[in-house]
């Protein structure tokens, strides 16, 4: 298994990602959100980086379509910041995935992130800057913004 084979495998994975992202674009376009060619490449590379940084392996289908599907209908997500937001959410997703010790499914985690994102008027900082515990508690108890904020001030020990 030489370096050339490895780069070929990477290229195959990139092609698969491209197909997945094209399908995502078709879906998110309904909400006025599309990734450009450059954006798709950036997201693909960021995914590889995030996986390596967080020590995770993702060989089959990617979580990106689920992440895009989970956020594309948010009223706070605009085309101008779509690519940047997606990159930040993707990194946060893998971070929280490790934090939860595999106790949350992808869908549960994305739903928790989405609730936090909407609760803070589309703030990725609010999603990234919280702890997994606060993220899940807010989702479970349906706390409103102020209550959630108060809890975060005392509980955000493991903030990202």
């Amino acid at each position: 298994m030489d370096r050339q084979s490895n780069s070929e495998a990477l290229s195959v994975r990139e092609q698969k990602m491209r197909i997945e992202l094209d399908a995502c674009n078709a879906r998110s376009a309904i909400f006025g959100l599309t990734l450009s060619e450059r954006g798709m490449r950036e997201v693909t590379h960021q995914r590889e980086r995030a996986l390596a940084d967080h020590g995770r392996v993702e060989l089959g289908r990617s979580v990106l379509p689920a992440l895009i599907e989970g956020f594309c209908d948010s009223p706070f997500l605009l085309q101008e910041e779509y690519e940047g937001t997606l990159l930040e959410l993707l990194d946060a997703f893998y971070y929280f995935k490790n934090e939860c010790g595999e106790q949350l499914t992808d869908d549960e985690l994305i739903a928790a992130m989405r609730e936090r994102y909407d609760a803070y008027d589309g703030s990725t900082d609010a999603v990234i800057g919280t702890s997994l515990e606060a993220l899940c508690r807010a989702r479970r108890l349906g706390l409103d913004d102020e209550e959630d904020l108060e809890e975060d001030e005392t509980d955000d020990v493991g903030a990202h």
Binding site: R56, V63, E102
Partner: peptide
């Protein structure tokens, strides 16, 4: 990986 996570997760720790 897909079988181990039973579709709950697309990725696993290293």
């Amino acid at each position: 990986i897909a079988r181990y996570t039973m579709g709950d997760s697309t990725s696993v720790p290293l």
